[in-house]
Design a protein around this nucleic acid. Structure first.
Lengths: 262, 262
DNA sequence: GACGCGCGTTGCGGATCGCGGAACATCGCA
DNA sequence: TGCGATGTTCCGCGATCCGCAACGCGCGTC
């Protein structure tokens, strides 16, 4: 899913990034295997991996001799996160929200045709804490994703809906018309919800985070098990999420307008 | 610090990674500036950044027009972390340790001439939770680092100690002889401590995590404010940390030997 | 043990791709 | 308006990196 082919740009660099993505998807990779997937000679793949390993972006398992993503990436990502003022500004607010709701709080941004979680705070009631940071999930079956879709340009939204929507669970919304109706509601009331649409037993609500120019560039969600986050509970939780999202937006320099619509 | 020059390998790829590291250090960067630091023509830097941006590893601030690290890196790092069995295995144990000590727990691995934290669980008493994941800190003034140094090959250790040790606080150990004595103690009693050597007011203890072959490849630490983690408290906390580290080691396939020394 | 098959790593020569220079557009500033 | 700095695009040439092939290695089979 999301094989964005080979875009333009410097060839080896492009190829290197592609290699990293492939390894990320597969978990690990051998030289010849990478060569086949990149459609290059295995000698080329070998040299590429050697370079990446030299720089610490990949490393080889001592036993299987296969390549995996390396710690260098984690270091770079750490710098990326601290460099992103969004994470910096949002952190304390996410923590407060996690404390108030006692559930897991995530903040995500659009990336490709999905949403990537860039930070997470685990609530005290979370039984098993899955770390979603860095994960990419589909837009149409996550609450964060619905928020982002709801505030997307019409053209982009049309593009997205022109592709078939993946069914992750029986309750995933895969009908574009139905999804559009939901997105209208999201815009109207200011928050989105998902009811076991990504994973069975997992509900969530999300609210938009705005940049200083008012554009929605991120979304903030509270998610938890369906038995604790029943549909009847969601409006209350969503209110807290909306407040927090607004607080983050303010930190990003957003000031509310007094226009009724935006 | 740690400008590892231009190592071998494919040129543009090497250069691209170098560029990412430079941007990580500086926070953000312009085209010409990068060109100067990489010692290439600005046209080259422009193309390089365009390619990286195309692939999502960097992105440009809409206003300042300067480049920053992008979300693509976070996505890759997320995959790297879930791919690393160390993080997977350690997570629940870190959480248990954080709950028992109510302080912040980190796990780190050596990278270059420092230690990189690859995962962290924030304890409930942590006042302000700094996210260290992805950060690189010097070996000689962190408890994790001391553990790693203590179990390093003699040659590597000599190399490290041949360079001057940075003084981060007044209490940093910068005398190689004194540090060696501490490392002996770390090996003997099985855990390391730092007393406000990295940051004033911050104490920590750490214990070694071993791979299946017995080599120490990571370290696990508990850190907190000096007034809660007084020197007299450290042995008790270190005992917990050592137990947890051993539990992680076992999950990695390590079985204790009955030899007195190793 | 010989053989075939797959993996990964090195030389090597030659085509390709990317580098550097230059020109151009833009912006801020005096 | 001129100046300096930044960033992008075009073009020709040459270093670089690719594909080939050969080699070493491990594994299973005949």
């Amino acid at each position: 899913m999301g094989n964005d082919d080979d875009a333009g740009g410097l060839r080896s660099v492009s190829r290197a990034v592609r290699a990293l993505e492939l390894i990320a998807e597969a978990g690990d990779m051998g030289v010849s295997e990478l060569g086949r997937k990149l459609d290059v000679h295995k000698a080329t793949a070998s040299r590429l991996l050697a370079t990446l390993a030299d720089r610490g972006l990949v490393e080889r398992d001592p036993f299987s001799e296969r390549y995996r993503l390396g710690f260098g990436l984690i270091r770079l990502a750490g710098a990326a996160m601290t460099g992103l003022d969004l994470v910096r500004s949002a952190r304390p607010i996410l923590e407060e929200l996690a404390e108030r709701t006692r559930e897991t709080v995530n903040i995500g941004v659009p990336s490709g045709d999905g949403v990537v979680y860039i930070d997470q705070v685990t609530g005290s009631r979370a039984i098993v804490s899955v770390n979603w940071v860095g994960q990419r999930t589909p837009l149409h079956c996550t609450s964060n994703g619905k928020v982002l879709l709801a505030h997307m340009d019409d053209r982009e939204l049309d593009d997205y809906l022109s592709m078939p929507l993946a069914r992750m669970t029986p309750r995933s919304i895969v009908d574009p018309t139905q999804l559009r109706a939901q997105l209208d509601e999201v815009r109207r009331r200011g928050w989105a919800q998902t009811l076991e649409e990504l994973e069975e037993g997992l509900n969530a609500v999300a609210a938009p985070v705005r940049q200083s120019d008012g554009r929605v560039t991120a979304a903030l969600s509270v998610s938890g098990p369906a038995f604790r986050m029943r549909p009847v509970d969601l409006p209350r939780i969503a209110l807290l999420a909306t407040e927090s999202a607004l607080a983050v937006s303010r930190r990003m320099g957003y000031v509310e307008r007094r226009f009724a619509t935006g």
